[in-house]
Design a protein around this nucleic acid. Structure first.
Lengths: 201, 201
DNA sequence: GTCTATATTGTGATAGAC
DNA sequence: GTCTATCACAATATAGAC
């Protein structure tokens, strides 16, 4: 975009990210990335050998940033309720800033499930910790007993869906773009209420 | 697949559906569809002029079948609680039979949002009816007051997510395929409980 | 209607000048 | 490092025999 102070390599990475995230690997043309970066096609191959390698560079960065927040959710030194509330807030904020990431991940996930496994492993997520905490608080009557694999999936599903299905939702409920932004903001308390109610003792 | 009693045109449609749904438009090769159908590449062009036209034929059928169930949710002659319970059951069953449809729709949605609008229009979904019913039952103290655009999104999100993010969920919670099937079955009551609790007076 | 062979176009990748 | 020009191949699409 801007021929700013960024190094060429970084410009390429930024441009590649923009295009890959919206169009996916198969739908992306090297030419389009070059156009976005304001440079020539050949330079892409000079810095990154191939389309695959360039994609890998983009994808690994995206994937690496996916799970830290989730890790935080699972391992923070907070009560369950505070933990979940905190998570929804930071997660929705991250989605607002990167609204196409979920669709991108879902796309890539289908065509190439294996490539994800290493990032999940690397992230070192330990859902057993959350399960322990749930059992602990449930035994003290603070919340009711629930299963971590449902709770976590529920929260993330509720956060992500309005982003991956935006055109459908927006159209069915007849919202314009501004109204959809308001709708998205409103979902924060909606989701938090919903989730807290589901673990109420 | 089998050179069965199906007409060639239908064999092609079936094969095209299999491939397009998993790989998307860009990721699909005409050759692969021909292989699936057990015929020659040229025949695809004989029956359907182009890849675009063939995709359109597949997609329109998928899209047309997407919303009837949703329409049923909104317009059935049932109380809200029964309506939601019923919907979750039939929707999850439909997903089990077509687990790749949601990812396919999300993919296509990103690259081609406009093509959806006509199907949504054609389906004639009227969320206002559901909103009316909610307000009615809420005023009689049967449920608490909620917004249709959150309730509907919540339910569908909870149903769909385990299908679009299966590799991640399955890996993080360390389930094998059999365990994941059990997990998916267990979500039915999980989701119903979750949703009913959220509209409890 | 179905096939083989071929044309045509699009796209990733490289060579080579500057 | 960056560009222009070009290669090589893959993929869609068509021609024409049967």
């Amino acid at each position: 975009m801007t021929t700013s102070g960024e190094s060429t390599e970084n410009q390429i990475l930024i441009a590649a990210r923009e295009v890959f995230i919206v169009k996916g690997f198969e739908g992306t043309r090297m030419q389009e990335i070059a156009d976005h970066a304001g440079i020539n096609k050949a330079l892409l191959h000079y810095y990154f050998r191939s389309k695959e390698k360039l994609f890998e560079a983009v994808f690994s960065e995206v994937a690496a940033n996916l799970f830290p927040a989730m890790k935080q959710l699972l391992e923070a030194e907070l009560g369950i309720k505070e933990k979940l509330t905190f998570f929804v807030k930071i997660y929705l904020k991250a989605l607002q800033e990167n609204p196409f990431i979920p669709s991108f991940v879902i796309n890539t996930l289908n065509s190439n499930p294996e490539s994800f496994l290493k990032y999940i492993k690397k992230a070192g997520i330990k859902p057993l910790l959350l399960q322990k905490q749930i059992e602990d608080e449930a035994s003290r009557g603070m919340i009711r007993m629930v299963k971590a694999e449902h709770l976590v999936v529920n929260i993330i599903a509720l956060c992500i869906f309005p982003f991956v299905a935006r055109p459908i939702v927006q159209n069915i409920f007849e919202m314009n773009n501004e109204e959809y932004q308001i709708y998205l903001s409103a979902r924060e308390t909606e989701i938090i209420d919903f989730v807290l109610k589901s673990i109420q003792a």
